[in-house]
């Protein structure tokens, strides 16, 4: 560490070792990132493939024709539409219900808070397959409308259920460490509780609510395991992929997957840039 040390002969050796230490970590990180992104790259690459038969598994040649016709497989448009609708509704309902729970847990002391915490946490600790299986068992044992036969409605019930816990945890993280004195100031200036909530509290926790909503949306739109148990014959986009995998995935699935990837990357990019700008403005 000291200059006297590094000028001596063993110091030079130690410096080389230290440099190797440092660069080894960078090389490892680069390899790990390649490992993480390799399958994503393959998905995007094979959206430009021109397969000979039904299976899109070996590279045959470059084509844009599936990008020109991304919905050109029977059923794919309906599946995407249904996934979007379910993700949209389940996000709104779960975000509303979860935010209320988070407010109650952080703001109030009440007798059942331990039990409430447990009931929020346990669904997240339950494997998805058990969540799906237990809902299926209940729907079957009820055996009548609107729960049976399974439908988009039963998928929606399941998605709202598993999203609530994630919303609570995300919003609660934003609420803890909340500057309570701002609310007190608003009350001192004559605002009632209702006005204080909407003018002070809500704008401050809104980033947390938006983050929770984005998380809920992405969990819902990509959910396969729970949907597989609660969908019956209804096809969301992941269910469509699963069904098609037996006979060969159409290239359009890769096109749609790539589009979803680009939209998600764009959304995260825009929100991150906006946050960086806001931080910079707050600092200047």
């Amino acid at each position: 560490m000291t200059t006297a040390e590094s000028s001596s002969q063993p110091g030079a050796l130690r410096r080389t070792v230290r440099r190797f230490d440092g660069s080894a970590l960078y090389i490892f990180t680069a390899l790990a990132v390649v490992y993480l992104l390799l399958p994503v790259f393959v998905i995007i690459l094979f959206s430009f493939n021109d397969p000979a038969g039904k299976t899109n598994t070996t590279w045959q040649g470059f084509t844009l024709k599936y990008w020109m016709d991304p919905l050109g497989v029977p059923g794919i448009a309906n599946a995407i539409f249904l996934s979007l609708v379910i993700a949209f509704i389940s996000t709104i309902v779960a975000t509303a219900l979860g935010t209320l729970i988070a407010l109650a847990l952080v703001r109030y002391e009440f007798r059942l808070s331990g039990a409430t915490n447990a009931l929020i946490f346990i669904p997240m600790a339950t494997p998805e397959i058990v969540l799906g299986a237990s809902l299926l068992t209940m729907f079957v044992s009820i055996g009548g409308a609107p729960f049976f036969p399974l439908s988009a409605f039963t998928i929606l019930i399941a998605h709202i259920m598993f999203n609530i816990s994630y919303v609570v945890v995300t919003v609660r993280a934003r609420l803890t460490g909340f500057p309570r004195h701002l609310e007190e100031a608003a009350m001192d200036l004559g605002a009632n509780e209702w006005l204080t909530f909407w003018k002070v509290t809500f704008p401050l926790i809104l980033p947390g609510i938006v983050a929770a909503g984005l998380l809920a949306f992405s969990l819902s739109i990509d959910d396969f395991v729970i949907t597989n148990f609660t969908a019956g014959k209804t096809q969301t986009f992941p269910m469509f992929i699963y069904a098609k995998n037996r006979i060969g995935i159409p290239v359009q699935v890769n096109v749609i997957g790539t589009i979803i990837f680009l939209i998600a990357v764009g959304t995260v990019g825009v929100t991150t840039l906006a946050r960086i700008r806001a931080d910079a403005r707050a600092r200047s």
Partner: peptide, 17 residues
Amino acid sequence: FLVVAPFFTSFLLRTIS
């Protein structure tokens, strides 16, 4: 961002990939 980027593609597509 690169660590979570795989989550922006479908779980099934990732596994097939």
